[in-house]
């Protein structure tokens, strides 16, 4: 990683920061200033510790995918460190970072590492799901990326009223404007990788959708632990009751976005109730729903056509 600092001067500065990161920082302001200047060092330190952890737990391979994973997790650790650290002054930044990292890795199942998820499509899905744990925009967007549901479908699926559907529309809007791109950047999926995925989806949609269908349980069993523990799978009858008696709105969003089986059941049931729709199925979308997708609300299948998939069109019609 020395290519970032080719000249001797920058290197010297780096060393100065290193020393300062080992010393006590006494004020919030001092902490912020120092951290802003030393982000490369902090990121490299967190990344190399992540690598060490992966190596020592037999989860390492010498390739760019693993390097990217380590960078991504290192990044997430530094992000927390930067925000948490200000509340911890006076402190020694390096020590604090180390202790934060050690604490994170001593949690049960700290990283979602599965060999099957190292493919481009696996990394794409993993990036979406891990973002959905911290971002409601991404959480709502899962319904679109996994099943091709537009905002109108999502509102109907979840049985939301006026105020909540406003929120869903905002989620879609922010995701379209910046959330998706930021997630791709932070996941380390390059433009060309995304383009290849998009091409493959166009050429062999069933092949890729089957792959998604296969990977979803792996992914969801890891990230579903991020929901409160009192959110288990429900029987068909219980789901029906929950919608009928109009409660558990948060529950619906969280569980259905992260549980394929319950989603299929509820979506099937509610589509049959709300329209004469066909069976719901996995229907991967790589890019976020384009702005024209809003029209799906008013204009039948136009939202689906925006993205050029026959499956999407079929689903859109069911909501019109």
């Amino acid at each position: 990683m020395t290519s970032k600092m080719p000249d001797g001067k920058a290197m010297r500065d780096g060393q100065i920061f290193s020393a300062r990161l080992n010393n006590v920082v006494t004020t919030e302001r001092e902490f912020d200033e120092l951290v802003t200047k030393s982000l490369p060092e902090l990121l490299d330190r967190a990344t190399s510790q992540t690598k060490r952890f992966l190596r020592e737990t037999n989860q390492w391979g010498d390739d760019i995918t693993h390097e990217k994973l380590a960078l991504r997790w290192g990044y997430e650790l530094v992000e927390r460190f930067v925000v948490f650290g200000r509340t911890e002054v006076p402190c020694r930044p390096f020590f604090l970072l180390d202790s934060l990292i050690a604490k994170s890795f001593s949690q049960p199942d700290p990283l979602c590492y599965h060999k099957e998820l190292l493919t481009p499509v696996g990394r794409f899905l993993d990036g979406l799901a891990s973002r959905a744990v911290v971002s409601r925009d991404a959480l709502i967007a899962l319904f679109y990326h996994f099943y091709g549901f537009s905002q109108a479908h999502v509102v109907k699926l979840l049985g939301f009223g006026q105020a909540e559907s406003q929120r869903v529309y905002k989620n879609f809007e922010r995701w379209r404007q910046s959330g998706w791109q930021r997630t791709m950047n932070e996941t380390g999926l390059s433009l060309s990788e995304i383009e290849v995925l998009e091409q493959e989806l166009r050429a062999r949609p069933d092949h890729l959708n089957n792959e998604v269908d296969r990977l979803m349980p792996v992914l969801q069993s890891h990230y579903r632990k991020s929901e409160p523990e009192h959110y288990p799978c429900l029987s068909e009858q219980k789901w029906g009751q929950l919608f009928h008696d109009d409660y558990g709105h948060d529950y619906r969003v969280w569980h259905l976005a992260f549980c394929r089986d319950c989603f299929m059941e509820v979506a099937d049931h509610r589509q049959a109730e709300l329209s004469n729709g066909s069976k719901p199925q996995v229907n991967l979308h790589i890019h976020p729903l384009k702005k024209g997708g809003v029209l799906a609300l008013f204009g039948g299948d136009r939202g689906g056509r925006q993205h050029g998939h026959t499956r999407a069109q079929r689903l859109s019609r069911t909501s019109a």
Binding site: E79, F84, T87, V134, D137
Partner: peptide, 11 residues
């Protein structure tokens, strides 16, 4: 935040 931006926190 709703979009996932880390606004604050602590250990």
């Amino acid at each position: 935040s709703e979009s996932g931006v880390l606004l604050g926190g602590c250990v």
